[in-house]
């Protein structure tokens, strides 16, 4: 067992003396930059009923093996950094409690459909590039900064907000893309995350970029390669329903909504 800097262990330890329960965590380890070896390392960590998978991983890093590679930041399901496969299902480590997994052993692996950087951290370039491709911002000729009157606002009605509000909760964690069967087969597929964002901006009546965006997604590896497996919506931790966004977008392309 590696000893680590005492200050770090003091700060990060969530081990409470009263704890009587523990969990075995199996962490998939690999470092493709060095070699192709993949293995699972097992650790036993005490838990409380509020302990999350991320808490366990940080406990392992603090007390047992500080070399475990994991990406995280906010610890409150808002930065989208800590996506991983938890007992086979994509989820946020900071938003998944050990108690809800109902299992003495928890297996964590990097998300599918992304190249592994090291251990649990994956490279998310593909998702970010596709996200940029659909122009995730309000497009229009005029500006909110008006030369004569100073700054003005593009007003938005509550009715219009209703049309896209759930899609604006996306934190770009990439779990939807990792759950998508087309993503695993078609390495050029645009993916549910970007498609849901294309819908979010097209449905916004301040936006005038509908045709530009539809053109981007209406190609041979675009929206039509979704076959409505629906796994994206199953795993989204923020209640976004990318599968529905994709069907709504199809409505524009099939001419049944405008």
């Amino acid at each position: 067992m590696a000893t680590i800097h005492p200050k770090l262990s003091d700060e990060l330890s969530q081990t409470v003396v009263s704890s009587t329960k523990s969990v075995k965590i199996k962490i998939k380890r690999s470092n493709p930059n060095v070699n192709s070896e993949q293995k699972f390392d097992d650790f036993v960590v005490p838990i409380e009923k509020w302990t999350t998978v991320l808490d366990v991983l940080l406990d392992v890093k603090s007390h047992l093996d500080h070399s475990v590679g994991v990406r995280y930041s906010c610890r409150q399901a808002s930065c989208g950094s800590c996506g991983m496969k938890i007992n086979g299902k994509p989820g946020l480590a900071c938003f998944t409690k050990i108690s809800e997994l109902d299992s003495d052993t928890v297996t964590v692996e990097p998300m599918d459909n992304y190249p592994v950087v090291r251990d649990l951290a994956v490279n998310m370039d593909r998702m970010i590039n596709n996200h940029k491709k659909v122009m995730p911002y309000v497009i229009r000729e005029d500006s909110e900064i008006d030369a004569e009157s100073g700054i003005r606002e593009f007003l938005q009605s509550p009715e219009n907000v209703e049309k896209y509000i759930q899609f604006s909760s996306c934190i770009k964690c990439g779990l939807c893309n990792s759950a998508c069967p087309t993503m695993s087969m078609d390495k050029t597929f645009v993916g549910p995350q970007a498609l849901a964002q294309a819908y979010r901006y097209i449905a916004d009546d301040r936006d005038k970029g509908k045709n530009k965006r539809l053109k981007v997604i209406d190609e041979s590896h675009g929206i039509w390669r979704c076959h409505f497996a629906g796994s994206c919506s199953q795993v989204c931790p923020k209640g976004v329903d990318p599968a529905m966004g994709i069907q709504l977008l199809r409505g524009y392309l099939l001419g049944i909504r405008d």
Partner: peptide, 12 residues
Amino acid sequence: MMVLRESIIMKI
């Protein structure tokens, strides 16, 4: 190779 837009192909 884009002969037709994908949406037209899928309508067909």
